[in-house]
C-alpha cells in the first residue's frame, strides 16, 4: 500500500515536472515572451502598460519601423490575455492583479541560459 502510494507520488511528481517543463516550454516559445522575461531579469517590477511600451519600442527599433498607438494597444491586450497568463502558469513571473504589475518569478537556471543565448 505504502509502495503504491510512493509510486503514485513519484508518478505525480513526474507528471508535475513534465507539466512544468511543458508550461515553461510553451512560455518560452515566443520571442515576445522571452523578451518580457529578459526585461524583468533586472529585478524591477513593471506594469503592463510599461511592458507594452517597451515591447513595441524594441520591436520598432529592430525592424526600422514606427510603432503606433494601435500596435501598443494590441501588445497590451496580448500581454494581458496571452503572454502574462502563460508566463504565470509556468511560474516564471508573478502578476499582482490589484496593481496590475509583473515581476520575475522562479526562473530555473536553464531558462536563464536560454534567455542569455537567444535574447540577451
Amino acid at each position: 500500500m505504502s509502495e503504491r502510494t510512493d509510486g503514485s507520488q513519484e508518478a505525480a511528481e513526474r507528471v508535475q515536472r513534465s507539466r512544468l517543463d511543458d508550461s515553461c516550454y510553451r512560455a518560452l516559445s515566443t520571442a515576445r515572451r522571452r523578451r518580457v522575461l529578459s526585461v524583468l531579469l533586472d529585478g524591477r517590477e513593471r506594469d503592463i502598460d510599461e511592458l507594452a511600451t517597451l515591447l513595441v519600442g524594441a520591436h520598432a527599433a529592430d525592424t526600422n519601423s514606427m510603432a503606433t498607438p494601435t500596435d501598443r494597444r494590441r501588445a497590451r491586450i496580448h500581454l494581458r490575455h496571452v503572454d502574462v497568463p502563460r508566463l504565470t502558469d509556468a511560474d516564471l513571473v508573478r502578476h499582482d492583479r490589484e496593481r496590475d504589475t509583473i515581476r520575475l518569478g522562479d526562473v530555473p537556471q536553464p531558462v536563464h541560459a536560454v534567455l542569455g543565448e537567444r535574447d540577451g
Binding site: G57, A60, A61, M66, A67, P69, G120
Partner: peptide, 20 residues
C-alpha cells in the same frame, strides 16, 4: 535587458503616440 537596439518613445500630452 533583452532589447538590442536603442529606441525612442514619443508621448503627446502624457499619452503614447509612437515609438521608433
Amino acid at each position: 535587458r533583452g532589447c538590442r537596439t536603442d529606441f525612442v518613445v514619443v508621448e503627446r500630452d502624457g499619452a503614447f503616440a509612437g515609438a521608433l
